[in-house]
Amino acid sequence: MNTKIKELRKQHKISQDELAMAVGVTRQTITSIECEKYTASLVLAYKIARYFNLTIEEVFDFSDID
């Protein structure tokens, strides 16, 4: 699934480690989500979106899903 996490991180100038610690996952999980290897759960997607003060739809691209 396509996400805007990488762009948002760059905008807010935060590292993968900082984001991972804030949302309660490992850095590898953030890397996998950014590389579209892993699809985040609803809870994790919500935590990431809330961290950037955005909605889930603004961070994650659901256009691929029918």
Partner: peptide, 13 residues
Amino acid sequence: LKEMYIKENDERS
């Protein structure tokens, strides 16, 4: 402790 908790409960792991 927090790092250990995150490592154990990381959803991907």
